[in-house]
């Protein structure tokens, strides 16, 4: 049995707990043994991206200690996953633990398609869906087709592409509050593209992007909902008990 340690990220833990639960459900249904290490907190990205490397380093070290010995670490966020697999090395150059960790950290959809080789989880979902490529998943982790395949195999789900799926939603962590007008302008362009598709749901693999997009949709009084890929895949899927 594949043993998986969840890293649920601070945003999922505190703001979107159902995403974490959904991810666990899908992984268990796919035959994984899932654990959650309670000492986990954050991937250190907020400090790293804001230029506070000393502070980021201590949090990265906490992460390394927490996940020592884990076989696979699965993360419901391309951005946090990339922080660990691509940027920890910049923070802790020459640290063997980082080197050892990198090949074992996966973003959720990537873990399903590349490690478990699963493209159909047996879920069903009724509706027209569009997929937003989150930047770090797309450009740092090279995730593009995997989530789309998983979605296409969901019963009842019809996937429609927006014309600018690869364009940033404007979240960017502290960028969203340091430059609120620019970030707001970016997300409004994004939701225009989403609206043009006629989809009723927009799906992504990063909850932070979805928080930004949902916030703008709500502000515009749109009926479109955002959902994390894990939530769609967990739909009508019975927990493996």
């Amino acid at each position: 049995m594949v043993r998986v340690s969840l890293f649920v990220t601070c945003v999922v833990d505190q703001v979107f707990p159902n995403v974490g639960m959904a991810m666990a459900k899908v992984l268990e249904a796919a035959g994984c043994e899932v654990e959650f290490r309670e000492a986990q907190t954050c991937c250190a990205q907020p400090a790293f991206n804001s230029g506070y490397r000393d502070q980021a380093r201590t949090v990265a070290e906490h992460f390394l200690t927490t996940f020592e010995g884990a076989e696979y670490i699965v993360v419901p966020s391309g951005s946090c996953c990339s922080m660990i697999s691509h940027h920890f090395a910049e923070l802790l150059p020459g640290d063997n633990r980082v080197h050892d960790l990198e090949p074992r950290v996966f973003e959720f959809s990537q873990f399903l398609t590349n490690v478990l080789k699963v493209e159909d989880v047996g879920a069903s979902f009724d509706g027209l869906v569009t997929y937003h490529d989150s930047c770090h998943a797309l450009r740092e982790l090279k995730i593009k087709d995997g989530p789309r395949k998983l979605l296409q195999n969901v019963r009842g789900l019809r996937l429609v592409e927006m014309d600018t799926a690869e364009e940033c939603c404007g979240f960017g962590g502290t960028f969203s509050v340091k430059f609120p007008e620019i970030s707001g302008g970016m997300v409004r362009t994004k939701i225009d593209a989403i609206e043009r598709t006629g989809a009723s749901t927009v799906v992504s693999i990063d909850s932070s992007c979805l928080m930004q997009i949902q916030g703008a949709l709500d502000r515009a009084r749109s009926k479109i909902r955002t959902m994390h890929l894990a939530e769609v895949l967990a739909n009508t899927l019975k927990a493996a008990e």
């Binding site: 740092e140 690869e166 940033c168």
Partner: peptide, 8 residues
């Protein structure tokens, strides 16, 4: 800092 670090 005026970047979302989207990487495009």
């Amino acid at each position: 800092f005026a970047s979302s670090l989207c990487g495009a």
